[in-house]
Structure formats: C-alpha cells, structure tokens
C-alpha cells in the first residue's frame, strides 16, 4: 500500500479518470446491447467482456490490487479458481445429461 503522501496526491486524478472511464464503458455496454449481432450469445459475450474490463478497473485501481501483497493474491487466486470450477462444472453437467435411449427389452439382444 502506498503510504507515501505524494503518491496518494497523484493517484487522486487517476481515481477521477477511472470513474469517468467506468461511466463511459457503462454507456457503451447499454449501446452494445441494442446492436443486433448474428446471435444473442455474441451480445452476451461482448457485454461480459466489457463488464469484466470494468470490473478489472475497479479491482486494480480502486481496490489497489495493482500493488497488493502476495498473501492477498494467493487467497484471491484460490477463490477465483474455485469460482470458475463452480461455473464450469455447473454448465458442463447441465450440458452432459444421461441420454435416455429407451427401455431395455429382451429383443434388443437379437
């Protein structure tokens, strides 16, 4: 953490700039959502990319994750991996149901 007075003085401008950038990108997200892309899935993907970018700005600049201690990174890395597991396995298990191929009858043996 920058306890240095000068550094904090400098970062104030940065905070305001990032705030403006976030609002700008929010407006862009709204606009993008009305654009008719070939599939709606592409709209979602695009929207999520912008949202992730915004979230990264908040996390890195406002939450000072651009210069944090290693312990915090380790905790967060572990958490993020688990959150991804949560998402990925949910979706995979939804996409991979047991396919029902009809009742077994003795004539199937023939």
């Amino acid at each position: 953490m920058s306890d240095n007075v000068e550094e904090i003085q400098k970062s104030i401008k940065k905070y305001l700039f990032i705030g403006g950038l976030l609002i700008l990108f929010s407006a862009i997200t709204v606009w993008l959502s009305y654009v008719e892309l070939p599939t709606h899935g592409q709209n979602i993907l695009l929207g999520m990319i912008v949202a992730t970018f915004k979230a990264a700005l908040v996390a890195l600049i406002f939450m000072h994750l651009n210069h944090e201690r290693s312990v915090i990174y380790k905790i967060l890395a572990f958490t993020v991996v688990l959150a991804i597991v949560l998402f990925a396995l949910f979706i995979f298990s939804h996409e991979d149901p047991l396919v029902f191929s009809g009742f077994y009858t003795p004539s199937d043996q023939l």
Binding site: V85, L89, F92, S93, D96, P97, L98, V99
Partner: peptide, 16 residues
C-alpha cells in the same frame, strides 16, 4: 472438485 459423486444417480452423462 469432487462434489458430484454424491449425484451419480441424477442422470449425469458419462463425461461428467
């Protein structure tokens, strides 16, 4: 990473 071994009976596909 192992939780769904409680759920084999729910009709899980072979990959999962």
């Amino acid at each position: 990473l192992v939780w769904a071994h409680h759920m084999y009976l729910t009709g899980m596909g072979t990959m999962m």
